[in-house]
Simulated assay, not measured.
Amino acid sequence: MRFKCVWLFVIMLLLAGCQPSYWVLEKDRIGEGSPDLEIYANYLQMHEDVKGYQIFTISEGKKMVVVSLGRREKDKKLEVSGVKFSPKETIVTVKRKPAPTANEKNPYILIGLDKIEGEFIVQDESGDRFEETDDQQ
């Protein structure tokens, strides 16, 4: 009986490891992702009206999504509420929270994804979608 429980536990761990995942990259580690990320983050601070998201390919084909709020919401910060992966779509949901100190002209978040499948959507908790920016730094 104990042997079966151990195998069941191992199988559950393996299945959990097969699921795509996400992470939030701390801004002080931005240089670890790709040189383009740091350039884009600086661009956002100089172009405060840019609101939306931009996708970057980082190491091993993984993706980094930079979501920005624009200067009208410089007193806010973003957090990830959840990420839903399916063959048809990848949905990233973010929520706005008050920022204890407004130290950015254009608040942004760096969200790493193992992969993107199907339609890609970035939305807030109300379902309002962010548009992909066409701003090139």
Rank of each mutant, 00 (worst) to 15 (best):
V80R: 03
E79T: 14
M46F: 02
I30F: 01
K62G: 06
Y108I: 02
R96T: 13
V6Q: 01
Y40S: 02
L37S: 10
L14G: 12
L37E: 10
G17A: 15
S59K: 09
L37G: 07
L25C: 04
E104N: 02
A16C: 11
I111A: 00
K105Y: 03
M1E: 14
L15Q: 12
E32C: 01
A102V: 04
F56W: 06
I91L: 15
P100C: 04
N42Y: 06
L113I: 06
F130H: 10
R71Q: 08
K4D: 13
V92L: 15
P100Q: 11
S126C: 04
V83G: 03
F120N: 05
D36H: 11
R71D: 03
V80C: 05
C18R: 10
L13H: 07
D135V: 01
C5Q: 13
Y43I: 00
K4T: 09
D75P: 02
T57Q: 12
M46S: 06
G70I: 08
V6I: 15
S59M: 04
I55D: 02
E117H: 10
Q137I: 08
P107S: 03
Q137K: 11
K4C: 11
S21A: 14
V24S: 13
K88V: 10
M64I: 10
G70V: 08
A16M: 11
I91S: 07
Y53L: 02
G17S: 15
Q45E: 00
I109T: 05
P87I: 05
E26G: 06
D124P: 05
M12E: 09
K27A: 06
Q137S: 09
D49E: 05
G31R: 11
M12V: 14
E79Q: 14
R2Y: 14
I121T: 10
H47Q: 01
A41W: 01
I11M: 15
G82Y: 07
W23P: 08
P100K: 10
G70F: 08
L15K: 12
L69F: 07
M12H: 12
I58T: 11
K97F: 14
R71Y: 00
K105R: 10
Y22M: 00
G112V: 11
S86Y: 01
A102K: 04
L13P: 10
I30K: 07
E119T: 11
L113T: 01
P87Y: 03
Y22H: 08
P20H: 09
S81Q: 11
V94H: 05
Y22V: 03
V83H: 02
E132S: 01
Y53F: 15
Q19F: 09
G61T: 07
E132K: 03
I116P: 09
G118W: 07
I121H: 00
Q136V: 09
K63A: 09
Y108K: 02
L113F: 12
L44S: 04
G112E: 04
E125T: 14
K4L: 15
Y22A: 00
L37Y: 05
V67Q: 00
R2C: 12
T93H: 12
S21V: 03
S81K: 06
